[in-house]
């Protein structure tokens, strides 16, 4: 019994962590360029396939993982360069639709270029086993996932607080004009924001694949939909909000999964999203609203 409860708590935190990383990636980009990036899920898919290829060619796992994360970051920077930079002056709706189109195009390319069917990604057996802490047996993947999430969040926090680029990004999120005053090139900040968001998508993809064991062209679709919702609950464009929203969403999913009666289980997502809507009625700006400079 103890095992089951602890395992559920662990699952909740690890799922929440993945949503948090994804929502954070969305929030980093949104806070700076005002783009809600639909193509974020395709960045996950890129990382998934690179990981698949790495494992296929028997690269050492850490190397394959780094390669996958790097590929997602690179893909993010490339989409910015090719699709979003021509739109720098556009309003939020046009940006959203651009990413919507980019996402649809990439999905078709994956389906034709690689395969419409899922590809298995065999991971080392150490990851599929359980960890025994005294009398309690816990899944290795959720544990590892929590560790990776925490490390990523700490590193990101250090980057944003301690480096010049990180500070520039935080300043730009509140008021983009500040960049000019700081003498920092806007294009570089935006490129770094996209790269960072891609890397976060890559990390989440690796964790996601580790739990599912396969990749397919649509793998990023569902988790990123959830991440959108998480970013909105937290407060669109707010980084602490994205993390909070991710955990709220992940934890409520696992709780509903565990405690809903059998007959209601197919409606789990509807229940979860109803909770989300209740939160938004209570706080329309999100749990931790973003700070932005307002000029009259």
């Amino acid at each position: 019994m103890m095992d089951i409860i602890l395992q559920q708590v662990l699952n909740a935190i690890s799922l929440g962590g993945i949503y948090a990383l994804l929502a954070l990636g969305l929030a980093v980009v949104f806070s700076i360029v005002g783009l809600i990036n639909f193509a974020h899920g395709e960045l996950m898919t890129v990382a998934g396939y690179v990981l698949f290829l790495g494992v296929l060619f028997a690269l050492p796992l850490p190397f394959a993982v780094l390669l996958a994360i790097g590929a997602a970051a690179l893909a993010a920077v490339l989409t910015e360069r090719l699709a979003f930079r021509p739109m720098r002056k556009a309003d939020a709706t046009s940006l959203l639709l651009t990413s919507f189109a980019v996402s649809a195009i990439l999905r078709v390319l994956f389906q034709n270029g690689i395969s419409a069917r899922p590809k298995p990604v065999p991971l080392p057996s150490a990851l599929s086993g359980t960890v025994n802490l005294g009398p309690v047996h816990l899944g290795a993947v959720p544990l590892a996932s929590i560790v990776v999430t925490v490390l990523s969040l700490v590193t990101l926090n250090l980057f944003l607080k301690r480096t010049t680029m990180g500070q520039a990004m935080r300043a730009a999120a509140e008021d983009f004009q500040v960049l000019r005053l700081m003498g920092i090139k806007a294009n570089r900040v935006i490129a770094v924001a996209f790269g960072l968001s891609g890397a976060l998508a890559g990390i989440s993809a690796v964790l996601w694949v580790a739990q599912r064991g396969s990749v397919d062209p649509l793998m990023g679709f569902i988790p990123v939909l959830k991440a959108f919702v998480a970013a909105v609950i937290g407060g669109l464009g707010s980084l602490p909000g994205a993390v909070a929203g991710g955990f709220v969403l992940g934890i409520s999913e696992v709780l509903f999964q565990a405690f809903l009666p059998e007959a209601a289980l197919p409606f789990r997502d509807a229940f979860v999203l109803s909770v989300v809507i209740a939160i938004l009625i209570w706080r329309p700006e999100g749990l931790i609203p973003a700070k932005t400079a307002r000029r009259s």
Partner: peptide, 25 residues
């Protein structure tokens, strides 16, 4: 009722949540 309370950006995502809720239902 909830949708009209959201800011413009969040409202688009709100409609996405409706898509999923209704589909799942």
């Amino acid at each position: 009722l909830p949708l009209s309370r959201l800011s413009t950006g969040s409202a688009a995502i709100g409609t996405l949540a409706f898509l999923i809720i209704i589909h799942v239902s």
